[in-house]
Structure formats: structure tokens, C-alpha cells
Amino acid sequence: MAERRCIFCGRLADIGMNALFRLPPDHRRVPDDIYRRYAESRGIYGISTMMPDVCGRSSPDFGAMSSEDGKPVLITKTGRITDILVCPSCHNELYRDTDDASVHTAVVFGTAGSGKTTLILTLTESCVTRQFSSDNHYRYILNEEIYDGHDLTEAAHKSVAGTAPADLREPVAIYRVSEASSDEKVVCDVLHDTSAGDREDDYAVGTALPFASDAAHYVYCIPVDMLSKAVIFGSESEDMLIRRDLYAMTRAFAYSDKTPVLDIVITKFDLAEKCGGAGEDIYNMRDSENALKNYLYSAYPAVREMEPFFSGMRLHTFSAAAAAEDETAVEKLYDALFE
């Protein structure tokens, strides 16, 4: 049975006989108030545009289902043709071509103000709008209605300046194709943003972060200014905070058979030399992952204790402000996450 994994809710969707399709926006069978109630039941309030209708084998409008170039196509009774597949659970479009979510999904965690949204926007902006120079892979962002070329750059710059939105409620999905001249979709990388409210209890994690249970990468952002002062002041409170955060992350995959890799990203790295404390030492360690790792262990014993719960731990450094000058650093981070 052919299946795709929905990037929004993390469920596997059948794209064979039980596939569900999105109908063109002018095909509106269900009244608006029912759509509104449906949206509100899914936690979307005050929507201005109604969701388009969907149609499947059991729908009254169903006419026939066929296949064009291996892609399933639905024809309604009234003759409308559609090939846009949607997830039967959340009615979002199925962007992935495969059921494999394990390699190409990263969920970004971190304390408030640690630069989660900035990390996502800068990564996306660097690889999509400007294109990495060193490879011939063409990448484009998927949910363009939210972040088209112009808005994305603006959002990234705003984010660096500290005026970005608090969190991105939609995942950012990036398509990679094999050659710049080809438009064959190969891989769909997805970056999910989170906020602290998602981690209220185990059940809230299940409903707010359903995609997290199958993700392969859990990115945890630690700002460098926090890290630089940790050893000197021996702050137990920050260690507790990190312990709680890492514990919450383990609960997100507790009910699945996947064990993600923990990618710890030291954000705001350009401030390392200026922020005092051991910042200068951290800056000098930037090329040695082992040295940074040892420093992190001594600063936060919680990291060492929680590490066995993940299938591995890697350390990265990241600076959104320096990303404009140094593209290779961002590219390196992107490759480390997804390739």
C-alpha cells in the first residue's frame, strides 16, 4: 500500500484506494459555517478564508479514480479533475512523496529567546533565496503562501533584528531536487518550530507536537551568552532548566519506536567574544567539537545525563548575524542536519 507521511500531523496517509483529494476552491459543497466549526474543532479560530472541500472514495461527489504518470487523479461526478492529495486526518496537503519522515524532519526546541525561529528562518532563507554556491542542488521552499521569496528574506532579517514572530505555527518545508535543471522532487526537508506551551504534559505533547514522534533530529538551541557564564557561576538553575527541557524532548518520542539524534546548536555565536565569562574560550573552541562537548558537559551535567536517551549527540555553532557574510557556516549546519 502506497503511503505518504503528512508533515503537519505526522500520520501515514494512504494514497492508494482510500486517498483523499482536495477539490478546486470553486467547488464548495459544504456550507461555510460547517467549515468554521470544523476549523475551530482543530484549534483554528477566527479564520477569514474557508478551507477548500475534499473528496474521497466515500464522498457523495466521487466519480472515478485513475492514474496519470503513476500519480493518482480523482474525477468528480461533475467532471472536475484534481490530483492534489490531502491527509485524511488533518486535511492538509501531502507534500512528501514517501512515508520516510525519519531522516528529513527536524524539530527545533529551546528556551524562550534562544533563537529557534531565527535559526529556522535563516536556514531557510540562506538555502532557498540565495542558494548555496557549492552544490548544484536546487532548493525551493514549499509553503510559499506564507514565506514567499520576498517575505522570507524580510522575515529572516526581522528575526535577526529581534522583531520576528514569536513562533512559526506552520512547519517550513524545503524541496531539494537533484540538479538545478531538473524539477524532479527528491527530498522534502521539514523544520518544525516549537514553543514552551507545547510541553505542558505528555498528552499535550501528543496533540501539539504529533510530528515530533517520528522526527530524526531534535535540535536544541542554547544561546552562547548563557553557556559562557554557566561554568563560571556554576548556575544550577540553568542546569535544571536544560534538564527539564531535555526531559520534555524525550517525552515527545516516548510513545514511538524512533530515537532521534540530539543536535545541540549554540546560537548567537557571534556574541561569543563580547559576552564575557568564558565566551572567548568557547570562541577558540569553535573548530573542535570534542572540546566544545567537554565544555558543555562541565557546564551542564544534565546534558551528559540525558544524552543516552537519544541515539547520538552532535554539536553545532550558529550565528544568524554572521550568516550574511559567511554562507558556508549555514550550509554546513543544513547539511549536518539533513544529509
Binding site: R199, E200, D201, E236, S237, M240, L241, R244, R251
Partner: peptide, 22 residues
């Protein structure tokens, strides 16, 4: 360790954070 996230959060917010952080 805490057996669920609710305990982890409650212990952090009501007990651990006030005493050891503040």
C-alpha cells in the same frame, strides 16, 4: 526521574525553580 511530563513541570515550577534558581 519524573514518570510524566506533568510531574516534571510541576516539580520544576513549584518546588525546584523557586528554591534553587531564585
Amino acid at each position: 526521574m519524573p514518570a510524566d511530563l506533568k510531574t516534571a513541570n510541576m516539580f520544576f515550577e513549584q518546588y525546584e525553580e523557586p528554591l534553587y534558581a531564585s
